[in-house]
């Protein structure tokens, strides 16, 4: 198939999954316990890697930027640089990429192996809609949990930055904190929470689509997992650009 048609067909399938999930929100049956279970797996399960990523990203930002800021004698603004880059960009994007790797792959592998072992067909044959039972709880859980994980990554990133600034560059903690406070606005925080809502939707819908469209046995499951992580990650990065532009316009972020 022509690559453009293939892309459009996939886009149509993902859009249909999102639409059917959205419509399922408004009618019974609803699978609350499955949604809570997914929230636990996605949110609590991903917490350590996301916090670790945030901590070391904050740390390395200070490590790399502090000498430059020092050169211009504005090293007291190191907190501001870390906070703005973390909260606006790196927190949401890196959390989404980590979750895409950990959860997107797990979702597509689980659904893919259910497809090849006919469990999805069995579910439909038993009168259950897989979109309602499997897809919707995962998408909802990702949309709810990814912003919370992002906030956790942001906080640990700032802690990482403060630790590096203090231990390596001997900057006083209150100076760093004051710089952070001056550097970020409410709009930054709102923007940093809006982005992961969309990223959660992207990761969930792409992973579910790739899983449910698995073909070709166990080899196909492996292919679905790879495609899911790569596609979701690329879409997160592309969407991040357009979301940043939209948020700049809507929330007046990053303009002086």
């Amino acid at each position: 198939m022509n690559p453009i048609f293939k892309f459009l067909a996939e886009l149509q399938d993902v859009t249909l999954i999102i639409w059917r999930s959205f419509v399922s929100l408004f009618s019974s049956p609803r699978y609350y316990s499955e949604t809570i279970r997914q929230m636990d797996m996605i949110g609590v399960g991903s917490l350590p890697i996301v916090l670790l990523t945030g901590f070391f990203t904050g740390g390395v930002l200070v490590l790399q930027t502090f000498p430059t800021l020092e050169y211009y004698s504005i090293q007291n603004e190191s907190g501001r640089s870390v906070a703005t880059s973390l909260i606006r960009e790196l927190g949401p994007v890196l959390s989404a990429l980590m979750v895409s790797g950990r959860i997107g792959s797990a979702i597509s592998a689980e659904l893919g192996s259910m497809v090849v072992s006919q469990q999805i067909d069995a579910m439909r044959a038993l009168g259950t809609d897989p979109i309602r039972k499997l897809v919707l709880p995962r998408i909802v859980a990702l949309i709810v949990m990814l912003p919370l994980l992002t906030v956790g990554a942001d906080i640990f990133g700032l802690i990482g930055g403060a630790v590096v600034a203090n231990t390596i560059y001997n900057q006083e903690i209150p100076v760093f904190v004051e710089s952070v406070k001056n550097g970020i606005s409410t709009s930054d925080i709102i923007g940093g929470i809006i982005k992961p809502l969309f990223f959660g939707l992207i990761i969930g819908s792409v992973a579910c689509h790739k899983g449910l469209s698995t073909k070709g046995g166990t080899v196909g499951v492996g292919r679905s997992v790879t495609n899911s992580v790569v596609t979701a990650s690329i879409w997160v990065i592309i969407f991040d650009f357009f979301l940043s532009k939209a948020l700049q316009y809507l929330l007046d972020i990053g303009r002086f």
């Binding site: 192996s113 072992s117 006919q118 469990q119 067909d121 069995a122 579910m123 439909r124 044959a125 038993l126 009168g127 259950t128 809609d129």
Partner: peptide, 30 residues
């Protein structure tokens, strides 16, 4: 089709049991 499927029982080639559910939960699924 969901309503029609309630009238029909289906036995799959490999059983197609739900791996994450026990025998009880599989049989009780419907």
């Amino acid at each position: 089709m969901m309503d029609v499927r309630h009238k029909i029982g289906m036995v799959f080639q490999e059983g197609a049991l739900f791996d994450s559910l026990s025998v009880y939960q599989n049989v009780a699924y419907r």
